[in-house]
Amino acid sequence: MKTNRMVLLVALAAAGLVMIQAVRAQAHAVFIFAWGEGDQICTNSYFSGKSPVRQGTVLIQDSAGKQLDSAKTDDKGDVCFNRPQTTSDLTFVVEAGEGHRAEFKLRAEDLPPLETSAAPTGPETSGDASASATPSGNAGTASVPAGSGANLDEFRTMFRQELGAQLGPITRALTEADDKSPTLKDIIGGLGWLVGIFGLACWYSGRKLRQKTQTILSK
């Protein structure tokens, strides 16, 4: 009986230790998240436990599975792409080595709009020089002179960039809140399942034993 108590004690201590470790620990499941940022699409890839995927390959595929672009992640697990010239949904795949892989789908309507006016020939020439000189200015001085309604396209680009800069951190924060790492809840839940399966196995084997003894007794 004494050894039994010892074993139980040690097992409990070990379980406690593991539990504490587990909450802090990370393990190898891979996740990827993508969002539009300005006229770019950025992705963040991480292993569970929020450890970034360094030097992992991120691929962009269209809905037909054709590869459009690929790049390596930096030390924060980030990599940004120019928006591919396609209207299809995009799938982002991260390959983190050793068979670790994850996907993220970004629907076409969530993508930054296509630059339709790549060569707006007509109205651009009529625009005044001061406005076109600061097309990427992200300061609050995005002053569109009243009356130059012809510069709507330019204003739109500027507005888009400004909005992207403002919304980028928010989408980022959303990815961080969406951490899919195992939590204490998951771990205890899993152990609960194992206890349940243990009970089931004991019940099954007990029933078999009872049947056996009954057949022996009835003889």
Binding site: V18, M19, Q21, A22, A25, Q26, A27, H28, G49, P182, I187, G190, L191, L194
Partner: peptide
């Protein structure tokens, strides 16, 4: 086994 993979 279930929890060992969480120890990094």
């Amino acid at each position: 086994f279930f929890v060992a993979s969480l120890i990094h």
